[in-house]
Structure formats: structure tokens, C-alpha cells
């Protein structure tokens, strides 16, 4: 039944997935096992997104299913789900820009692919990024923007991080509709992503060989 749950989530059969999850939990199956299967299904969804057979409707519906099943499982759990993490990412939309759809998609995909993501939200001033980098000590920083008004703040944020002495231990990726190689150079970031999957590939590459975090 667990494999049917995985297929139902990955196949976008929401009603079937939810009723299966309920049956499993009520039948006494370990909620951690149910959540493990959900995570497995999310990996398949992530792969299909990468292969361009799935897009935002599928990604977002899978996210909703995961959330609903997690809520069902939570009251039955005695301990939290331990997830092996590939690395830590701090992410946010830079100061002056309040858009978050792109950033949220990247956050979700990074989470699906095993990263611990600290999302600082939108309109984030440089100092807030610096504080979070000090507190979280991430391997990767992601800066997001939708508007051209964010070009300068991106540059300023990276400058401030450099001045705070935090740049060397950090890989910085930027992304968003108007972002390209020219803005990568202009801002001083290490890389840019033309779409959300690039952020995952970059993050995987940068953390390869790192010891997985418990």
C-alpha cells in the first residue's frame, strides 16, 4: 500500500493519495514510514519537473498533498522525521522587491532535493542576510528578484556580505526573470539560474562530497 501511496502522489491522484494515507495511519502503520513514502513521491515529482513533464500545477498540487498528509500524521508521531540534509541554503528576495513566486518554487525544489532551506522572505535588507548567514552558517546563499529595481540591491547585498568577511565561505546564486550572466557579473554572484532547476543543480554541485548533515 505504501508503494500505491507513492504512485498516487506522484501521479497527481490527490483523493486516492489522501484516502490511502488515512487508511495506512488508521491501520497503525508507522507515521514516519508514511512520511518517508511521501518524500519518495516528492523526489519523483522533482525528477519529472526536471525532465519537463511536470510543471507548476503538479509541483504545487504535490506540495499540498504533502502538507495534508503531514498534518494527518503529526498527531500520531512520537518523534520528528529525521532527514539527511545535503546542505544549508539561506534564500530571500532582495531589498526593494516584494515578489516571491520564483523564490518559493526554488525553496520547495531545494527542500525536495534534501537541502535545509532558511527562507527570509521578501524585501530583505543586506543586514538581515548577514545576520542569517552568521546564525545558520549556510554553504549557499540564494538571492531572488523579479524586477530590474533589484539589480542594485543584489550588488549591494553581495558587497555588504564581502565587507562583513563572509563571502569566502559562501557560494552565492541569483535568479529571477530579468537575471542573466550580465547581472551575475555585475552583482558579483558565483552563478545565476535561468530557471528553478538550475538552483538545485548548482546547489548539488557546490555541496558534493560534503558530509551529510543529520
Amino acid at each position: 500500500m505504501l508503494s500505491e501511496l507513492i504512485d498516487s502522489i506522484a501521479g497527481m491522484k490527490e483523493e486516492r493519495a489522501l484516502s490511502l494515507a488515512r487508511e495506512l495511519l488508521e491501520g497503525g502503520v508507522d507515521p514516519l514510514k508514511v512520511l518517508e513514502s511521501c518524500r519518495e513521491a516528492m523526489t519523483i515529482v522533482g525528477q519529472r519537473f526536471e525532465e519537463c513533464t511536470y510543471y507548476l500545477p503538479e509541483l504545487m498540487l504535490a506540495g499540498e498533498m504533502l502538507q495534508e498528509i503531514s498534518q494527518m500524521a503529526k498527531p500520531r508521531m512520537t518523534k520528528g522525521l529525521e532527514v539527511r540534509r545535503r546542505g544549508r541554503v539561506v534564500i530571500g528576495t532582495v531589498q526593494g522587491d516584494i515578489h516571491d513566486i520564483g523564490k518559493n518554487i526554488v525553496t520547495m525544489l531545494l527542500d525536495v532535493h534534501g537541502f535545509e532551506v532558511h527562507d527570509l522572505g521578501v524585501d530583505v535588507p543586506p543586514q538581515k542576510f548577514i545576520d542569517a548567514i552568521k546564525a545558520v552558517q549556510p554553504e549557499i546563499l540564494g538571492l531572488s528578484a523579479l524586477l530590474t529595481v533589484a539589480f542594485e540591491p543584489m550588488k549591494r547585498t553581495i558587497q555588504a556580505i564581502t565587507e562583513a568577511g563572509l563571502r569566502d565561505s559562501l557560494k552565492i546564486m541569483i535568479g529571477g526573470a530579468p537575471i542573466d550572466e550580465r547581472i551575475r557579473q555585475y552583482s558579483g554572484a558565483d552563478a545565476y539560474g535561468a530557471d528553478a532547476m538550475v538552483a538545485v543543480e548548482l546547489s548539488k554541485g557546490w555541496t558534493e562530497g560534503h558530509k551529510t548533515l543529520a
Partner: peptide
Amino acid sequence: GTRGIMVDIYR
């Protein structure tokens, strides 16, 4: 909203 309408395609 984006999430709302994208999920509505299935729901």
C-alpha cells in the same frame, strides 16, 4: 493567486 489557479487545474 498562482498556487490557487495552478492547483485548480487538477482539483
